[in-house]
Amino acid sequence: MIVAERKPIEEIMGFIRDCKRVLLVGCNECVTVCYAGGKKEVEILASALTMAFMKEGRELEVKEVTLERQCDHEYLEEIRKIIDEYDAVISLACGVGVQFLAEKYFRTPVFPGVNTLFMGVTEERGVWAERCQGCGQCILSQTAGICPVSRCAKRLLNGPCGGSTRGKCEINPELDCAWQLIIDRLKELGRLDDYETLIPIKDWSTERAGGPRKLVREDLQ
């Protein structure tokens, strides 16, 4: 999932300082799962903003809506009839949703309510960690299902660096060394030969280095 966290209220207040009516749009997907922008968080933020405005002696009308997704046209269409009634939109979706909403409703200011962090997993309740950087050329088949691109601070592709100590990374003693994890699992799987096979120089043009990416599937168009 895409992991995000709520922006400080003060920052959000800054976006809507001159507004009287605001549409607060949540998303039922990733940001719901990471408790950043689902229905519940929309409710909490609406309450917080209403009180913050009242405290300043001003009134803010907040309409709460939570869409199934904000990264698809069909769900964003659900607010077409009401969006013109509001001075601005605060989207609690990830950066993708905020942008798609802004793209679709060109004349309405759209502001982000969360900071989008990474693609990751729920390691335990309340703890999320990065697992993928969307490099466009997955090498997990050679690395025992553990990604050195997203989990090694140096993105090394052929074994650990000299900073790997007792299975931990030199940038943070609590962070597992990705290559230690890879080697441990390869051993377990009896596939240490994979470790001996050199991974060739990676073509980073499929990552962000090649500019914004796009996928076209003609069979689905």
Binding site: P8, I9, E10, I44, A48, L49, M51, A52, K55
Partner: peptide, 8 residues
């Protein structure tokens, strides 16, 4: 912490 943030 939320109440602190909004000044309540």
């Amino acid at each position: 912490s939320l109440l602190d943030e909004i000044g309540i």
